[in-house]
């Protein structure tokens, strides 16, 4: 094989610029955050509360997303119905909506004075300023990532496989659990990881819809924001942690993608 000619300096220079632009801020953040005091800061009450709130709410949001999003993705992949294209597109809306808009929309729908405010109040559901509101904001902004990936997963293999299993006498649930789910699994996992990462970073909608109280509704991004107002140290510590988590997410996605390409035979 002949050696490729040396690249032109202009694209190399522009690429270096882009790479610098993308990586320098993260580098600067880590440079300032990674001090001997980091460990101690990570054990402060504000940081621990934020981590706990984030872990619980993103966990709950992921559970809701999986439970409600999987059937949606399956129906979208398998069934034809009137208006499916439009429905499909509308479900992606929260993905491209600015988070603050999502927050306003949630307030107007589920807030005390909102569209469903009165019925919810009658039903005894009180979301305002509760971790439940945080979960709702996270589901709203992150579920489409999962639905999209899961739908692609259900479309990634020949439905005849399901048909064959059905002929062999598999019941509906057994079919889904033994055949459909394993075949789509890498996609579902990827969607779940993406959705979780999105809800972990959720900020705008949460602040507007759920408020910000330490130990109740103040997730990691909200804690970073409120700490940045007085003492930057906890903000930096949490930011460094978020960088590490983001890196973990990317690594996981790489591993899943690798697994998806290898045929499972």
């Amino acid at each position: 094989m002949s050696r490729a000619p040396a690249p032109h300096p202009v694209p190399v220079l522009l690429s270096a610029l882009m790479v610098g632009l993308l990586l320098l801020p993260v580098f600067a953040l880590l440079l300032e955050a990674l001090t001997p005091a980091l460990g101690r800061t990570l054990q402060s009450a504000a940081v621990r509360d934020a981590l706990r709130v984030s872990a619980l709410t993103t966990g709950a949001a992921l559970a809701v997303t999986l439970a409600l999003g999987t059937p949606v993705a399956y129906l979208l992949a398998r069934r034809q119905f009137v208006g499916k294209g439009l429905f499909d597109a509308l479900l992606d809306l929260p993905m491209v909506l600015p988070p603050v808009v999502a927050g306003v929309a949630l307030l107007l729908a589920f807030g005390q004075g909102g569209l469903l405010g009165r019925p919810l109040e009658v039903a005894g559901v009180d979301l305002a300023f509760t971790p439940g509101a945080v979960v709702l904001a996270q589901v709203f902004t992150s579920a489409p990532f999962y639905v999209r990936a899961a739908r692609a997963g259900f479309l990634a293999f020949d439905p005849d496989v399901e048909g064959a299993a059905r002929v062999d006498g598999a019941g509906r649930w057994a079919l889904f659990r033994r055949v459909t789910l394993p075949l789509a699994f890498p996609f579902l996992l990827e969607g779940a990881v993406l959705a979780w990462a999105r809800s972990l970073g959720e900020f705008g909608a949460t602040l507007l819809f759920a408020g910000s109280l330490q130990g109740e509704t103040r997730t990691v991004p909200l804690a970073i924001y409120s700490a940045a107002e007085s003492d930057l140290a906890p903000a930096l510590a949490l930011s460094a942690l978020m960088v590490a988590l983001a890196f973990g997410v990317l690594l996981t996605l790489r591993l899943i993608a690798g697994r998806r390409i290898t045929p499972a035979q």
Binding site: A128, L207, A210, G211, L213, Q214, E216
Partner: peptide, 9 residues
């Protein structure tokens, strides 16, 4: 129930 980042919020 909430400590907001600014008074207008």
């Amino acid at each position: 129930v909430s400590e907001e980042p600014n008074v207008r919020q």
